[in-house]
Simulated scan of single mutants.
Amino acid sequence: MTIKLIATDMDGTFLRDDHHYNQRRFKRLFRQLQKRNIRFVAASGSSFPRLAREFQPYVDQMDFISQNGSVIHHGHKFLAAYPIEVTALERVMHILDRFYGPQDINQLVVSGPTTSYVDQQMDAKNFAIVKLFYERVVRVPDIRQVFSEYPDERFTKISINFAPHIDLNRVAAVMDGYLPPSLIVENSGFNTDLIGNAQGTKRNALAVLQHRLHLRDDEIVTFGDNENDLGMLAMTSRSYAMQNANPVIKLQAAHTTDIDNNHDGVLETIEQLLKNDY
Rank of each mutant, 00 (worst) to 15 (best):
D167E: 12
V71D: 05
S182T: 15
T222H: 05
I160W: 00
F26A: 08
N244A: 01
G265L: 05
L79K: 07
N68Q: 09
T13V: 08
F162I: 07
M232L: 07
K35P: 03
L206V: 09
I129P: 03
T201Y: 02
N246W: 09
Y100I: 07
V248K: 10
A207P: 08
R216M: 10
V118A: 08
I84A: 03
D218R: 02
V171N: 03
T8K: 00
M93V: 11
D9K: 02
A52N: 03
S70W: 04
E90F: 01
H73N: 15
I195G: 04
S159K: 00
G265K: 00
T8L: 06
K157A: 10
L274K: 01
R31S: 15
V174H: 03
G12W: 09
I105F: 06
N204W: 00
Q120V: 15
R216C: 07
N37E: 14
L267H: 06
D123L: 10
R53D: 14
K125C: 09
I143F: 03
L233D: 04
H165S: 00
L206P: 07
L230E: 04
I6M: 01
E54A: 12
M175E: 00
L251G: 14
A88E: 11
P247G: 06
E186G: 08
P57N: 05
P141G: 14
P49M: 03
M93N: 12
M93A: 08
I220W: 04
M93T: 08
H20G: 11
N106G: 07
F14R: 06
F190M: 15
N226R: 00
D142Y: 08
P102I: 09
R154M: 13
H165R: 04
A253H: 07
T269A: 11
S148P: 03
Q56K: 15
T8W: 04
R39V: 11
N261E: 01
R39M: 12
N169G: 13
E135F: 11
T156I: 12
S148K: 15
L29T: 00
L230C: 09
E268C: 10
D229G: 06
S46G: 15
M235P: 06
P49F: 04
R36T: 07
N197L: 07
N22I: 05
F99V: 00
E54V: 15
D277M: 11
D217C: 09
P180N: 01
